[in-house]
Computed example of a mutant assay.
Amino acid sequence: MTNTPEPLHPALAGREAESAALTAALRRLIAVATATTAPADATLAAARELESVADALERHVPDPPLPKTLVHLPEDGRADFAGRMAYDFVIGRHNPMALPLEVAFEPPKALLRGTFTRPYEGPPGCVHGAVLAGAFDILCAAANFAAGVAGPTARLEIVYRRPTLLGEPCLFEGEVEAHEGKRVRTAGRLLQRGRVTVEATGDFVQLDREDIVRMAARMQ
């Protein structure tokens, strides 16, 4: 018998699989809602039904809300990077708005892999540039995390070399290039069909865990 590890986020204890099912259903709904041409009566009926579902779930929202990111875990790569950010806007496995990307590490590189679908479209047939910028921000954060120099973004420069296509596998690669004092320089690139479509360079401010905890406390 295989023991299933406890989720990192306390909000998922005893309900991780069910939350994943809810997230998957909402992802499907987002895709359908941005493509459907259902008639007005069917659209309104769906909206009212979804409002009822939202009302039922809203009764279980804690006040104050639980944190989206866990900052009390070690930053040496032992803790699951995506797991500690279960509700993150970019890679949260339990956030239906998150991008369809999976994080992996091949030291010294951090990797993101995935395929973008129509809800992430910008120019016809291509991924929206803002979506790609968000992906690079988390890619660099993952690379910094793996190198033990995590901290907030100070600057992120994106260079779009060619269109990034929908429906084609993407590979993001990121790596820390320089580290001096608290300043960290991290670079990344996106490959599709073996060609670079986007490049990014970012400057970050390294914070120790106590600094991050204090910053998170101030924002609550």
Rank of each mutant, 00 (worst) to 15 (best):
E49R: 13
D41F: 06
T37E: 12
P67V: 03
E51W: 07
A54F: 03
V61Y: 06
A45S: 15
D63F: 14
P64V: 03
L70W: 00
A35I: 02
A45Q: 05
P67L: 01
A33Q: 07
A46H: 03
A40R: 07
H72T: 15
T34S: 07
A47K: 13
A38C: 04
S52K: 10
A46C: 10
A54M: 09
D63G: 04
P62R: 05
P65F: 01
L50T: 12
E58M: 12
R48C: 04
P64W: 13
L73K: 00
L73R: 01
P64D: 04
T43V: 11
P64T: 14
A35G: 14
A45V: 01
L70Q: 02
D41T: 07
D63Y: 01
A40G: 06
L57D: 07
E49N: 10
A38V: 08
T36R: 06
L66H: 09
R48T: 03
L44Q: 15
P39Y: 02
L50M: 02
D55R: 02
T34P: 02
R48P: 00
H72N: 11
H72D: 12
A45Y: 01
A46S: 12
A42I: 10
A46K: 00
V61D: 14
A56T: 15
L70E: 01
L57A: 09
L44Y: 06
A35L: 05
H60S: 05
A35F: 05
D63C: 10
L57P: 03
L57K: 12
D55H: 11
S52G: 15
E49W: 13
L50C: 04
E51S: 06
T43W: 10
L66Q: 14
K68V: 13
A45T: 06
A35K: 07
A45M: 09
D55L: 08
D55K: 10
P64L: 08
V71M: 02
P62I: 07
P62K: 03
A33R: 02
T37W: 02
H72W: 10
S52Q: 15
K68M: 15
A56H: 06
A38W: 05
H60E: 14
L66T: 12
L50K: 06
L50N: 03
H60F: 14
L57W: 04
A40M: 11
T37Y: 02
V53F: 15
A33C: 14
P67W: 00
R48Q: 15
L57V: 11
L44H: 15
V71K: 00
T36Q: 11
D63N: 06
L44S: 08
A33E: 02
L70K: 02
P67G: 06
T69N: 14
T36K: 03
T69G: 05
D55E: 07
T36F: 01
L73D: 00
V61E: 04
A54L: 08
L73A: 00
P65R: 08
L73F: 03
A42R: 12
D63I: 05
T43N: 09
A47R: 07
A47T: 14
R48I: 07
D41M: 03
T43K: 11
